[in-house]
Simulated assay, not measured.
Amino acid sequence: MTTATLIGLVAGSLTTLAWLPQVFRAFRTRSTKDFAWEWFAMFGTGVGAWLIYGFLAAAPAVIAANALTLVLVLALGALKAAHSVRSR
């Protein structure tokens, strides 16, 4: 493993895992009102594009970080959708 790949994996892990407290908090408090649907669309599209780039560039750090980030963002979006339905 190259130094660049190792740094990429550490950086990707830190920025991706930074989402876990937010996902856990949203799940615990059942509140996602501070997240705009536009943000989900923009951020999710960007993460998806980075994931595609990672596959095209054969960059494991980019693939791993963005695949996990996309899962977390989708989980947060699912919580927001569920909370929106329940609050009606």
Rank of each mutant, 00 (worst) to 15 (best):
M1E: 13
T2C: 11
T3F: 15
T3I: 15
T3M: 14
A4L: 15
T5E: 13
T5K: 13
L6F: 14
I7V: 15
G8Y: 00
L9W: 02
V10R: 07
A11I: 07
A11S: 14
A11T: 09
S13W: 06
S13D: 05
T15E: 03
T15K: 03
T15L: 08
T16C: 05
T16Y: 03
A18S: 15
W19V: 04
W19M: 09
Q22N: 10
V23C: 01
F24M: 13
R25N: 10
A26Y: 05
R28N: 10
T29F: 11
R30A: 12
T32L: 01
K33L: 12
D34R: 08
F35E: 05
A36D: 12
E38C: 13
W39C: 04
F43K: 03
F43T: 14
G46R: 08
G46T: 05
G48T: 01
G48S: 09
A49V: 15
I52S: 07
I52C: 11
Y53F: 15
G54T: 03
L56W: 07
L56S: 10
A57G: 08
A57C: 10
A57K: 12
A58I: 10
P60S: 02
P60G: 03
A61F: 01
V62G: 03
I63A: 04
I63E: 03
A64W: 04
A65V: 00
V71A: 02
V71E: 01
V71N: 09
L72H: 07
L72E: 06
L72D: 05
V73A: 08
L74V: 10
L74P: 06
L76V: 04
G77P: 03
G77M: 01
G77E: 04
A81Y: 14
A81S: 10
S84G: 10
S84N: 09
S84T: 11
V85W: 14
R86Q: 13
R86M: 08
R88I: 09
R88Y: 13
